[in-house]
Design a protein around this nucleic acid. Structure first.
Length: 162
DNA sequence: GCCAACGTTGGC
DNA sequence: GCCAACGTTGGC
C-alpha cells in the first residue's frame, strides 16, 4: 500500500534530444540535466516510485503530450554534474554535497497521437493546468489528478487511473 | 530566428 | 538585499 496518494506529474523533454520513442526503446532513463531548483525539488522531495508522469514534447513541431511514464527510483545525485565533459557539468557541486538530484523514469505508454499544446489550451476541462499558463516554463511540474485523467482520456490512453 | 518570460549571477 | 545584465526556455 502506498503511504500517500499517488501524485501526478508532467515532465518536458525536447524530442530531438530525448523523445517518448527513446524512452520506449530504453525502457528506463535517468532524468538528467535538470538545472532548475524548483524542478529538482520536485524530484528530490515529492516524487515517489510509482507516480505517473505525462511525457511532454517541448520545442517540438508540434509541442504536446506524447505519452505516459512512471517514476522508477528514489532520488539520487545526477551523475552528469560531476562529468567535466558533460554540458551539465557543475563545478560548484561536490560529491559530499551534490547540488543536482534526479530520479529514474520508466516507459508506460506512447499515445497513438500526440495531444498538441493547442488542444490542451483549448480544452475547458484543463482550465488552470500549470502547463498552459502564460510564461510557464518549468520543466517538471505537478498535475492535478483531474487534469491528468483528462489528458489520458483525450489521448485515448491505455493507461488507467483509478 | 525572434522574443517574452523567467531564473540566476554578481557588483555594489 | 537590490537590481541590472545575462542566459535559458520554449512557443510561434
Amino acid at each position: 500500500m502506498p503511504s500517500r496518494p499517488r501524485k501526478y506529474w508532467l515532465m518536458k523533454s525536447e524530442p530531438d534530444v530525448y523523445s517518448i520513442d527513446h524512452l520506449a526503446k530504453d525502457g528506463k532513463a535517468e532524468w538528467d540535466g535538470i538545472r532548475n531548483y524548483q524542478a529538482r525539488n520536485f524530484m528530490r522531495d515529492e516524487m515517489k516510485v510509482g507516480d505517473l508522469v505525462i511525457f511532454y514534447h517541448s520545442n517540438a513541431k508540434p509541442p504536446g503530450a506524447a505519452g505516459v511514464a512512471r517514476v522508477a527510483s528514489a532520488p539520487y545525485p545526477d551523475p552528469t554534474q560531476f562529468q567535466k565533459k558533460s554540458k551539465y557539468f557543475d563545478a560548484k557541486s561536490s560529491k559530499d554535497d551534490p547540488r543536482w538530484i534526479l530520479v529514474d523514469v520508466e516507459f508506460v505508454e506512447r499515445f497513438d497521437e500526440l495531444v498538441g499544446l493547442g488542444d490542451l489550451k483549448g480544452d475547458p476541462a484543463l482550465e488552470g493546468m500549470l502547463l498552459i499558463q502564460k510564461g510557464q516554463r518549468l520543466s517538471i511540474q505537478p498535475v492535478d489528478k483531474k487534469h491528468f485523467k483528462r489528458v489520458l482520456t483525450v489521448a485515448g490512453a491505455k493507461t488507467k487511473v483509478s
